[in-house]
Structures are given as C-alpha cells and as structure tokens.
C-alpha cells in the first residue's frame, strides 16, 4: 500500500512541476519565435542558392540543446507502448527540444540576412544512473548564415 501511495505522490508532484516547467519553456519559445518571425530561415539552398546581391559574410551556425522529460511523461509513455498509438507526452518533449535548438542557432547569427540549408540532427541519450528509463533528447541544429553587404 505504501509503495502505491509513494508512486502516486511522485507522479502527481512530477506531473505538476514538470508541466509548469514545460509551459513556461513553451511560452518563452513562442516569444522568441515571434521576435525572429521576419528573419528568413530556409532548409533548401544547398545546390541552387543564387543571389545577385553582394555577400559580405558566410558562416556555419549551430545550436544545441539537451532536454529531458519528467518522470510522469516516461511513466505514461511506458504504459502507452502496451497499447500503441501516439505518445503525446514524448511528442511535446521532442518538439520543445527541436524548437529550442533552432532558436539558439538563429540567435547566434543576429546579423545574418538569411539562414539556408538548415539541418536538424537528434539523438536520444540514456542517462547514467537510471538506465533506459528516462531518455534525454539531444538536438543539434545547423545551417549556413549569409549576410548581404549593402
């Protein structure tokens, strides 16, 4: 009985705290995305990037982030894999990590006119002390930032 009670307490605590963290993070991401809305980000341009404008600077920009979900998320996900279907708790985690990585990449090139050929690379890392139970999501986003000369 004590075990079940303990589990329920942990689940409710992690649900509320984790949810609050996630919501604040999503709001922050939205704000930053709105600030960058006028700056073009493309994921093509590897072969056919042509411009007649003078180019001042070309550089590779990257952004990386490692995000882990809370205990509640993984508990629900491990239940859901029995029945199959969408793992919504994991979807939000991955969404959050990718958007954060892309934002960091864009913020590293504040003066760039355009970022082309954006690629997003992700890997799930396992943590050391609770093997395989709480995977963390590592994302690297990279692209070529181009600054036009005046």
């Amino acid at each position: 009985m004590g075990d079940i009670l303990g589990l329920i307490i942990i689940l409710t605590a992690t649900y509320f705290i984790g949810h609050a963290f996630e919501q604040t993070h999503f709001e922050e991401i939205k704000k930053r995305e709105i600030m960058l809305i006028k700056r073009p980000l493309l994921n093509f341009g590897a072969r056919n990037f042509n411009t007649k404008r003078k180019i001042e600077k070309v550089e590779l920009v990257t952004g990386e982030v490692v995000i882990s979900g809370d205990y509640f998320k993984f508990f629900i996900a491990s239940f859901k894999t029995l029945f199959g279907g969408r793992l919504t708790t994991m979807e939000s985690l991955l969404d959050r990590a990718r958007r954060e990585a892309i934002l960091r990449m864009r913020e590293k090139a504040p003066l760039a006119s355009v970022i082309i050929n954006t690629r997003v690379e992700s890997v799930m890392l396992n943590d050391v002390y609770w093997k395989n139970t709480r995977p963390q999501c590592a994302v690297i986003a990279y692209g070529t930032a181009i600054t036009y000369g005046s």
């Binding site: 984790g18 963290f21 490692v66 995000i67 882990s68 809370d70 205990y71 943590d127 050391v128 609770w130």
Partner: peptide, 10 residues
C-alpha cells in the same frame, strides 16, 4: 539525474 525527475534542460 536529479534534474531528470522534473524534466527540463540539462
């Protein structure tokens, strides 16, 4: 690992 319990950026 501790941060993992509540989630968030590591």
């Amino acid at each position: 690992g501790l941060k993992n319990v509540f989630g968030g950026e590591l």
